[in-house]
Design a protein around this nucleic acid. Structure first.
Lengths: 242, 242
DNA sequence: TTAATAGTGTCTCTGAGACACTATGTG
DNA sequence: CACATAGTGTCTCAGAGACACTATTAA
């Protein structure tokens, strides 16, 4: 490489392949906690390629919408959800990740309380159980199953799922993200259970309580849970202003 | 919104704007530490739009290369650098961030020791001093100057710069990233200085030493620095295997 | 010798884990 | 009553900051 930067820039401008445009999709990893396990919303592909495989809800980016807006649109179209927490995860761009043509995928992670999600399911849409083979933030692909049967995932969506879990585990330490998976009012035990589900390990009850109460993000509702068959716990709300 | 998910998916497939393709560039925030300050490589735009502004080195993605490969290509073309640490940062996609047409930018952060970078400079390429107005990981745009003069940044590149610094500050706690900005052999003081430059604040010497030595990622070379006008410090190397 | 920085030893403070104990609900 | 879970108080242990002290170089 002995070309000067100027020369090289000139050549770049005339490279015929430089301006061919890839397709760009936004794919959303919509996660929820159901019965103490992480679940993800998947959609069955009814067309080639990967016909019959299960894929993340997604769609091609439109020319007038931002990436965040595209993610919100996908959530609205595929799961009838509005105002859900969603953040950009990573952009996947291996040249042959889609066999048809060059497709970049801007992946998002979205979190929602399971109660808002259940009525949506139909035969093409499943809330699949998520399996993570690795500990901590090691990273790697994840798999998904439904009623005990492993679902074949389309394209590189297993990698996207894995990265979503890795990111979520990392954020849990310093960002108020567990609340997004809970209803408006919840007990400390509910919150700890969500954290344990995401992290894939048990947490110390005492220090979890201390940490959460010291964070200043919880405010006590002043009421207690009902229909518990033991001493009812105090209800808290997430304080978004803090 | 009363359409079923099936109907909506059907409509999506026939939306005429859904398959119009955006342009996609890869833009690289190439950071280095020079004289105790963060610097960034910028390139002057000689064409409209933003003629005369300074922009991050970047280029349009090609159909046969991955995103990581595109970032490596940009680094090679614009700064004659190979094998430099680079990782994907975020994808910027506001609809009007480029006035010509829809352009998505997949931003990367790259780190390099300043000694590898200095000979590259010509009039169109500058190693600009980076200014960060906020503390910690607050976030926000950053600005750049050269010989005391503020440089006008193209497009949303001030936001990209700011996010790069925010990400870097966050990673410093748990990832071995300071080494990328140092030569092969360095002293603990060098390493601390790099950390302080990135974080924008002084660190405690004692606990920094302990933390670094306890991390198991440093191995003592067995030699000491030369031409110091005081007691010379031991030299260390980064242990990539650990 | 002095000035400057490298490097060590130790005290304290803080936060997490562990555990004992009390409180309050159901059956 | 027994039993289960909520919630409190306190001990211990590990890591970070603070600081005193010694070591080693140049001038």
């Amino acid at each position: 490489m002995t070309r000067s930067p100027d020369e090289q820039a000139f050549l770049d401008a005339y490279d015929p392949t430089a301006f061919e445009r890839p397709s760009v999709t936004v794919d959303v990893v919509l996660l929820t906690v159901l019965d103490g396990d992480l679940h993800v919303l998947l959609i069955r592909r009814d067309e080639h390629p990967c016909k019959g495989c299960w894929s993340l809800p997604g769609g091609f980016i439109r020319m007038t919408e931002s990436l965040d807006e595209a993610a919100a649109r996908v959530l609205n179209d595929k799961a009838h959800l509005q105002g859900v927490y969603a953040e950009q995860l990573y952009t996947f761009g291996a040249p042959r990740r889609d066999p048809r043509t060059r497709v970049l995928s801007v992946a998002y992670v979205a979190l929602v309380n399971a109660a808002r999600l259940r009525p949506v399911e139909d035969d093409r849409i499943r809330l699949a159980l998520l399996h993570v083979d690795w500990q901590g933030e090691t990273g790697g692909p994840a798999s998904a199953s439904w009623h005990g049967q492993l679902l074949a995932l389309a394209f590189d969506h297993a990698d996207i799922l894995g990265l979503a879990v890795k990111r979520l585990r990392g954020k849990l330490d310093y960002a108020p993200v567990g609340f997004e998976l809970l209803p408006e009012r919840f007990t400390l035990r509910d919150l700890q259970s969500v954290h344990e589900t995401i992290l894939g390990r048990k947490l110390n009850k005492d220090s979890f309580r201390r940490r959460m109460l010291a964070s200043g993000r919880l405010s006590a509702v002043g009421e207690r849970e009902e229909d518990a068959d033991h001493r009812p716990a105090a209800l808290y709300t997430f304080e978004r202003s803090a």
